[in-house]
């Protein structure tokens, strides 16, 4: 028996880490495909506002962050549809507002809320509550079910929105769905990985996987494997060397990227010769 699993809080943290390692890269492939790699980052900032609000109002952080992030997703899609260029700046404003508002609300909250804000920024081993686990499992299952039904349409929209529309696909609905899914991933990952780094688990495994792969499907599958390995091993490692789990998980994912990028050089060369 691995010793860290003797603790209840570690079991819960492990489940939460495995959930985010599974779903984050599945959403990340679409974000990378649409060149929206930083969208998850912004979503994390918006979710932080929800955490600050929860401290201030005394509500539960996970549901409050989920509602805030979902509203943020709708707002982001609305801004992006209005204008491409002005949208860029408007999004930046929204993201700054999220992080500033989050820290401000937390500081105004009674008690030592602002010090526990740190655990939401970089993740924590001990903060996944028993009640949280069920919420995280339900949210992760929701992401998987939505992807099973709408995944191909999301793929078509990511290939080219205009062509997707000519195929009868409702592009705006799919884009909003994508943003909401990213918001869910952010909330599922915020306890263990932290809001500042959770989007890395959407993007880094995908960047690592695509060094080797030749298809969208294989990229998604390998990214999920890398995401799961980084999340679980990073979590265990952070228990032993006593660091926040978020940075440990992300550094491991980046190490996977570095190794695969090195391996990929001779493999690509060989494929080119064979082609």
């Amino acid at each position: 028996m691995i010793s860290f699993l003797e603790y209840d809080f570690m079991q819960r943290a492990l489940i939460a880490a495995a959930l985010v390692g599974l779903i984050a890269p599945l959403i990340g492939v679409f974000l990378v495909q649409r060149r929206l790699a930083l969208l998850g980052d912004g979503m994390g900032h918006v979710a932080l506002m929800g955490v600050g609000l929860a401290f201030l109002l005394g509500t539960a952080p996970v549901p409050t962050a989920m509602v805030t992030a979902a509203l943020g997703a709708f707002l982001i899609e609305f801004i992006r549809n209005r204008s491409r260029t002005a949208g860029d700046v408007a999004l930046a404003l929204l993201f700054y507002g999220g992080i500033a508002g989050g820290v401000l609300f937390a500081s105004l909250a009674p008690g030592k809320a602002s010090s526990s804000l740190n655990s939401y920024l970089f993740g924590s081993l001990s903060t996944v509550a028993t009640g949280d686990i069920w919420a995280l499992v339900v949210l992760a299952l929701l992401v998987l079910v939505v992807l099973a039904i709408f995944g191909r349409e999301l793929f078509a929209v990511s290939l080219d929105p205009d062509i997707a529309q000519v195929q009868g696909i409702r592009v705006r609905v799919m884009s909003t769905l994508m943003a909401v899914l990213a918001a869910i991933v952010v909330v599922v990952g915020m306890r263990v990985v932290g809001l500042l780094l959770v989007s890395a688990i959407m993007i880094v495994p995908v960047a690592a996987a695509q060094q080797l792969t030749r298809s969208f499907r294989s990229t998604a599958v390998i990214a999920v494997i890398i995401g799961l390995v980084a999340c679980i091993a990073g979590l265990a490692g952070s228990f032993y060397i006593e660091v926040p789990p978020g940075p440990a998980i992300v550094i491991l994912a980046l190490a996977c990227f570095a190794v695969l990028a090195l391996i990929a050089v001779p493999i690509r060369q060989r494929r080119k010769e064979l082609a």
Partner: peptide, 23 residues
């Protein structure tokens, strides 16, 4: 296809993507 250069998309996936329809 812009979305086929930002991430690996195979020739087969490209051709099959024409059959993606809401129904």
């Amino acid at each position: 296809l812009p979305g086929a250069s930002s991430i690996p998309v195979s020739v087969w996936e490209t051709v099959m993507s024409g059959n993606i329809r809401p129904r």
